[in-house]
């Protein structure tokens, strides 16, 4: 036991000195588990996140919008793959990660359990949902685990295009007809609160926060990131001419930040527990894609094995 303790102390001193932890380095089992949980949850979110947006690809209003949305959804797939790859360096297999998603054991961001009912939702997702994700991801570029930090750097570089394409969609609607402006306001009304919930539970109820901060997996608390997001959103909403659906939103001279209303935590936990508007639909779509694609994966593997066998037999004859 004394051994583990001294290893843990050494580990903490490496983290405290801002040296990154790499896959083959010794790490506490709980650090490894926390990272697997967090990175896989993050990867699953990217993959499931393609579903609400995919819903609008073939209904995009112009070709310009369609290529932008297609490229964005393709990026989400890429981001999922960077993250699965980072997660696998911790000694877990890709299949096991998928099984955890499909069985419901692993979570993904609850935001994707809300439906995209109008074209304006695609804009609102880019602006608010990606905006909130970027807050979190910029912080994670400095996370203590090397492969995770490197994946986040790549993701952040690409994510800014996502937010800009979303904002441009909304900006166009804001200059449109009365109906288009109403569509914009309606989307913002529906996406604002769920976006604030994306940062997770508030201080007291956030179970993993303290240890993750100590290990420098996280650099800021959920509440700090949420406040930062609220503060920057105000000016962006003004340019769009939309109202954020919170009567308590008010600048606080003392703190230099915007105060905002109470988040509906009951709704938050309800969606986390699987009772959001689209939880079942999202998971069913993933399971269906996996099951129906099984024969393709099997066939590709069988083909590769056959080719390799033929190649080795041919070389023996020669």
């Amino acid at each position: 036991m004394a051994d583990i303790k001294s290893l843990e102390e050494k580990f903490q001193s490496i983290v405290d000195a801002e040296t990154k932890i790499e896959p083959k380095d010794w790490m506490p089992e709980a650090y490894r588990k926390t990272l697997i949980r967090q990175i896989s949850q993050h990867a699953h979110s990217e993959i499931v996140g393609m579903l609400p947006e995919g819903n609008w690809i073939n209904r995009a209003p112009t070709l310009r919008r369609k290529v932008g949305l297609l490229a964005k959804v393709q990026d989400e797939a890429g981001h999922g793959l960077y993250l699965y790859s980072a997660c696998e360096t911790l000694g877990i297999e890709r299949d096991e990660l998928f099984d955890q998603l499909h069985s419901g054991k692993a979570k993904y961001s609850s935001i994707f359990n809300y439906p995209t009912t109008s074209w304006a939702d695609i804009g609102a997702i880019g602006w608010l949902v990606d905006g909130a994700a970027i807050m979190n991801q910029v912080m994670l570029c400095r996370t203590s685990y090397g492969p995770y930090a490197r994946a986040m750097v790549r993701i952040c570089k690409e994510e800014s295009f996502h937010q800009r394409q979303g904002y441009e969609i909304l900006l166009t609607l804001s200059k449109g007809s009365e109906e288009q402006r109403a569509m914009l306001q309606d989307a913002v009304n529906r996406w604002w609160w769920p976006s604030l919930m994306m940062f997770g539970p508030t201080g007291k109820e956030s179970t993993h926060s303290a240890q993750s901060m100590k290990w420098k997996i996280k650099r800021k608390t959920n509440d700090e990131l949420r406040q930062q997001f609220v503060d920057i959103s105000i000016g962006q909403a003004e340019i769009l001419g939309v109202t954020l659906p919170d009567p308590d939103l008010k600048y606080n001279e003392e703190t230099g930040h915007y105060d905002f209303g109470e988040i509906d935590w009951e709704e938050f936990w309800n969606v986390v527990k699987g009772n959001g508007p689209c939880n079942k639909e999202r998971l069913a779509a993933r399971v269906k894609a996996s099951e129906e694609g099984q024969w393709v994966r099997d066939a590709a593997m069988a083909y590769a094995e056959k080719q390799a066998k033929r190649k080795s037999e041919a070389s023996k004859v020669a």
């Binding site: 793959l81 960077y82 790859s85 980072a86 696998e88 297999e93 890709r94 299949d95 492969p147 490197r150 994946a151 790549r154 099984q294 994966r297 099997d298 590709a300 593997m301 083909y303 590769a304 080719q307 390799a308």
Partner: peptide, 29 residues
């Protein structure tokens, strides 16, 4: 279900520079 083999990926960003490790992926061949 059988996992496809894991491959490490290296990218040369432009002529004159080393290939650099960027991550991994799964593929059959």
């Amino acid at each position: 279900m059988k996992n496809w083999p894991l491959w490490e990926v290296f990218v040369r960003s432009k002529q004159g520079l080393h290939h650099k490790h960027v991550g991994s992926l799964h593929a059959t061949d």
